[in-house]
Design a protein around this nucleic acid. Structure first.
Length: 423
RNA sequence: GUGGCUAUGGUGUAGUGGUAGCACAACACCCUGUGGAGGUGUUUGCACGGGUUCAAAUCCCGUUAGUCACCCCA
């Protein structure tokens, strides 16, 4: 590397032209799928009140404890770069009075998010997520719709080897008892747990469940499982969810140790994983307590979010093609100063007529210009030379047949359309 | 926050202590009037800072950055 004076902050990326096609393809795929399911797009600010996230995500979660980008404004507001999408949307739902709309409200989003973490595969400080939230509905069928929609989007992007991992972590009625028994069990084995887990036991005991330390995993084999503690309501919710999934023939596995790091989840939590690479491409769940935590009412909701960069990695892995750049059909060449002067207005005329035209005005040699046209693979080249410019004529060259005709300047649009049609 | 690995033109690479090379790309000219070519030429580099040595791209230390793993997560 030279020694650039400035470089990107750690964990951020320039999305280069050659990668834009992936973002475009994902965006368009989402748009077409969620459009069918009647979702509407929402964009929330990238900056939010810092406390919004503490209230909702949980004070002792990693996201809040160490992963937020925060800043103080000149007016002394304490703000944070949004680390995830669900909480701002719930805030917007409450703030904009969406309770009075017909429920549920279905919203989707696509945009950048920020977490102060050490970058590694599929994880950056600025990354992109998209997601869907269904707010104001408690029926498990919308949980399944969330899963289905995400599943279909991934499939339409070419990612077919997928499995849904699902669990229920209960609600306010049944989770406290489970937590109590789990802590009791863990405490009895405390000395065999890893250091991290001893800490988690206090702050966030459910998190011990997905510790990857082998010793901890061995201890957890005997640990109480959340599904055994579910109250009638949560149990039915999970059972219905699984039945709907069976009906859709979506492969899933019940993962008693799946928890997820955000405090606002209740009942169902799930992840969609690539069986090819083992990467979690999307995750989500139900969050019936979030609205209340933010000062709204009792509002049931459910959502799912996907990581764009992880999906792009996966697409590259399986050679799923990005969206292709659309190339012009026509290329404009000019020779001589008079032709050059006339070329801009003519080009404008062509643009207005809806034709896509390439050019290389900086070049003067016809050979070079034709060469570029040829490389682009255009079908038709317009040649405006000195002689033609004086006579008010213009040449249309068919690149396939190498035949060219001379037409009047004012008939250029008509003649071009005719030539394109013939090809 | 912890640990492993890596760092040579724009890109991809060779160079294991002794003259920094190759390919592609870019640009210019051959060439202001007809096709992806060719020829000729030009530009661009050892991440940064220290140390060892007669001599460092090469060995050592530090920094920075990248990457991978842990933590956590999309």
């Amino acid at each position: 590397m030279a020694k650039p004076k400035f470089q990107r902050p750690t964990g951020t990326h320039d999305i280069l032209p050659q990668n834009q096609g992936y973002y475009d393809k994902i965006y368009n795929t989402i748009k077409s799928v969620v459009g069918f399911y009647d979702f509407e797009k929402i964009d929330t600010p990238i900056l939010e009140d810092f406390n919004l996230f503490i209230r909702s995500i949980g004070e002792s979660t990693d996201i809040v404890e160490k992963e937020m980008f925060t800043l103080k404004t000149k007016g002394k507001d304490y703000l944070a770069l949004r680390p995830e999408g669900t909480v701002p949307i719930m805030r917007a739902y409450i703030e904009n009075g969406f309770v009075s709309l017909s429920q549920p409200v279905r919203l989707w989003y696509f945009g950048p998010f920020f977490r102060y973490e050490k970058p590694q595969a599929g994880r950056f400080r600025q990354f992109h997520q998209f997601g869907m939230e269904i707010i104001g509905e408690s029926d498990p069928i919308v949980d399944v719709q969330s899963i289905l929609i995400m599943y279909k989007i991934l499939q339409e992007l070419g990612i077919k080897q997928l499995v849904v991992k699902i669990n229920s972590i209960g609600d306010d009625k049944c989770r406290p008892q489970y937590r109590k028994d789990l802590v009791k069990y863990l405490r009895s084995k405390k000395n065999s747990l890893c250091g991290d887990c001893q800490k988690r036991m206090k702050n966030n005991p459910l998190r011990v469940l997905d510790c990857k330390n082998e010793k901890c995993q061995n201890i957890l084999i005997e640990a109480p499982q959340s599904v055994d503690y579910l109250c009638e309501e949560c149990k039915k919710h999970l059972k219905d969810t699984l039945e709907y999934l069976d009906e859709l023939k979506i492969p899933y596995s019940l993962e008693s140790k799946l928890v997820r790091g955000l405090d606002y989840y209740t009942k169902n939590v799930f992840e969609i994983e690539s069986t090819l690479t083992g990467t979690v491409l999307a995750g989500g769940g139900r969050y019936d307590n979030l609205a209340k935590a933010l000062g709204g009412g009792e509002i049931s909701a459910c959502g799912v979010a996907g990581g764009i960069e992880r999906i792009i990695n996966e697409m590259k892995e399986i050679k799923s093609k990005p969206m292709l750049k659309d190339v012009p059909d026509i290329f404009f060449t000019q020779i001589g100063p008079l032709a050059k002067k006339k070329s801009l207005p003519i080009l404008e005329e062509l643009r207005k007529a809806g034709l896509k035209v390439g050019e290389s005005f900086g070049k003067s040699g016809l050979k070079e210009q034709l060469g570029k046209a040829s490389r682009l693979g255009v079908k038709v080249v317009i040649i405006l030379g000195q002689k033609e410019a004086i006579n008010g004529m213009i040449l249309i060259r068919n690149m396939k047949t190498s035949k060219q005709v001379e037409v009047k300047e004012e008939e250029i649009v008509k003649e071009l359309k005719k030539t394109l049609k013939e090809n």
